[in-house]
């Protein structure tokens, strides 16, 4: 028996909107730790890892570890039917081939339930070690989204370089080239508007903008984004979910063969 009650249901709506274009089907894993997911895109160069910790739910009952295969587009369709202020409860019985999403309006005058069929998914789970990164950039998530969108109108790939001077996003295409430099800026009114760069080693990595643009669908989840980079290793783009957990995207760099 599984019953997870999330008062801020809009968080789950935003999570689905942020990952449904990158991944078609995924197993949601439920344990005493929380509600989590790890899934790769179809070409296996990008991965999403989601964690919603059990403490973030108003009510969290998960009698035994459960893995529920869901089509993310179908799940997003159902969650779109929840109001932004609704409380969302996820329910499943042991051995059932369905999951139920219950939506309650804040005043309790409208209660809906949507039952979705589960699916069997053979998923490959990757062991991702906690790593020390050469450079970590924290910046406003809207700024990162704007940069990825702007650069993708010029080129297909972005080179992200971190030096003492700041973080540089560069692209080249048929019509020309573009460079955007963001300097460390901590003298802002609101901490979330700051750009903070922690650098151990200079880093320069190239990525496909098609994927970074998918990642920025998570912008509504957090006002800041953290980009962790090490030379020759996949980048981690993390959006924290207030008090509850995170959505992390991993992307393989384009490297010389």
């Amino acid at each position: 028996m599984l019953e997870l009650r999330l008062v801020q249901g809009s968080l789950l709506k935003k999570v689905l909107e942020s990952i449904k274009e990158l991944v078609n089907d995924a197993n949601f894993d439920c344990s005493s730790t929380g509600f989590s997911l790890q899934a790769m895109d179809s070409s296996h160069v990008a991965l999403v890892a989601l964690l919603l910790r059990s403490e973030g739910f108003e009510h969290y009952r998960c009698d035994r570890n459960l893995s529920m295969g869901m089509n993310l587009n179908n799940m997003a369709k159902m969650l779109k039917c929840a109001g932004n202020d609704d409380i969302i409860t996820i329910k499943a019985d042991d051995g059932s081939d369905t999951v139920t999403f219950m939506f309650e309006s804040p005043t309790q005058d409208k209660i809906s339930d949507f039952e979705m069929k589960l699916m069997d998914i053979d998923s490959e789970h990757l062991g991702i070690p906690e790593a020390e990164y050469d450079a970590i950039v924290r910046m406003p998530s809207a700024e990162f989204a704007r940069i990825c969108k702007d650069l993708s109108s010029i080129g297909d790939t972005v080179v992200i370089s971190v030096t003492k001077e700041g973080v540089k996003f560069s692209t080249k295409g048929d019509i020309g080239a573009a460079n955007i430099v963001c300097r460390q800026n901590t003298t802002v009114d609101k901490p979330d508007d700051a750009t903070v760069i922690e650098m151990k080693e200079p880093v320069s990595l190239q990525f496909a903008l098609r994927y970074t643009n998918f990642f920025t669908k998570a912008t509504p989840l957090s006002s800041t984004v953290t980009i962790s980079l090490s030379n020759e290793l996949p980048v981690v783009v993390e959006y924290k979910i207030a008090e509850m957990g995170y959505v992390r995207f991993y992307l393989a760099p384009k490297i010389e063969e």
Binding site: V45, L47, P129, P234
Partner: peptide, 14 residues
């Protein structure tokens, strides 16, 4: 020529 290797190139499957 630059190439994107799959993530299984970097991380082991569990």
């Amino acid at each position: 020529m630059r190439r994107q290797f799959p993530l299984t190139f970097y991380f082991a499957m569990t």
